[in-house]
Design a binder for these strands. Sequence first.
DNA 1: AGTAAATGTTAATCTAGATTAACTTTATTT
DNA 2: AAATAAAGTTAATCTAGATTAACATTTACT
Lengths: 194, 194
Amino acid sequence: MNIQPLLNYIGQHVTLTKEEEAILESKVSYRKYLKGQFVVQQGDVCKYECFVISGCTKTYYVDDEGQEHIVMFSIEDWWTSDIGSFITQTPADFSIQCIENTELIMFSYDEIENLYAEIPKLERFFRRIIEKALVASQKRIIRSFSLSAKDRFLYFRNQYPKIEQRIPQYMIASYLGITKEFLSKIKSQLILEQ
Amino acid sequence: MNIQPLLNYIGQHVTLTKEEEAILESKVSYRKYLKGQFVVQQGDVCKYECFVISGCTKTYYVDDEGQEHIVMFSIEDWWTSDIGSFITQTPADFSIQCIENTELIMFSYDEIENLYAEIPKLERFFRRIIEKALVASQKRIIRSFSLSAKDRFLYFRNQYPKIEQRIPQYMIASYLGITKEFLSKIKSQLILEQ
DNA sequence: AGTAAATGTTAATCTAGATTAACTTTATTT
DNA sequence: AAATAAAGTTAATCTAGATTAACATTTACT
């Protein structure tokens, strides 16, 4: 298992000693998933917080009408989890599915509190990660209320150009909260405009 | 200043000694605001994370068209802050205004890292609070995509009956992402239905 | 290479919710 | 108690985006 991308990522936020890195390595697990496999399924208890080494996942919610709503995509150097389920150890609202072959480093619920106790710096690290995630989530709410579908798409394209390339358009539509037909219309309008 | 509600609240998550409580008390400040006053204004740097002792605030965003979008209400035993601005010490996206006379306990940016260092349990406490806020925020995104305006209103009414009572309807409409006219229509429909 | 499945497009029609505007009710101030 | 401002209602009209359905293109599989 190649834990280096995770160590580099953590190193951007806090400084770990070699010993601490070794402890960390001993307490996380590594797993490969194939495209189409599930990391978590709606209704299961989410047992891990996962760091993406390679590949891509989608986190989504299926509503009462059976419609799928994508909450986030996670690529290299991002996190993926149903934190709501993870922190309370209750059934997940979301499913997480790999949309490419994906390598993950997984922090299990049973180990993570020990890890915090052994390396308090990691508690600081996770606090900061989660703070950033909360900020991003709040800004997404604002965008969903104050921008048109077209402007949300332009924002997405501009913010995540790498993700746009590798993901089918109908999933981007789901992430933006619109139908694939309407996204198609937006794109053809944008082409006419320039 | 009456810090007891804060201590009770913290006590639900972690256990502090009398000494730790005293340290905490020495590092936070207390302030009363009148209805209409601002805790933070869009464009300012947010210097505090605030715990509400009494009263009510609204956190909102004014978009390019001058429209106000309410992100959250905070009443007794809740938090209020523009965390994005707070953690990065950059200009706030949101304004926080008191919609009642309000008493706050304020954790300042300059002190909070010292406080974490002195009382590591508080870092755990804040991590957990922020995790919960993130979960709530993600669920709000899902609701904004998968529920109709009527169902979002029913959810709000059911989830926050106390808030519904004390807040003008046009602010609830703003929180739900609809116009006050449409909320009025929804309410009259609901009356006809029963 | 040929077929089936997945993904994307176009166009017509429909609807939830916005906009506008006139009006009513409730609070606040003098 | 009147006057004024703030909050809420109703109804007509409008629009962003949904729905439906038929078709086109790309990708994956035998």
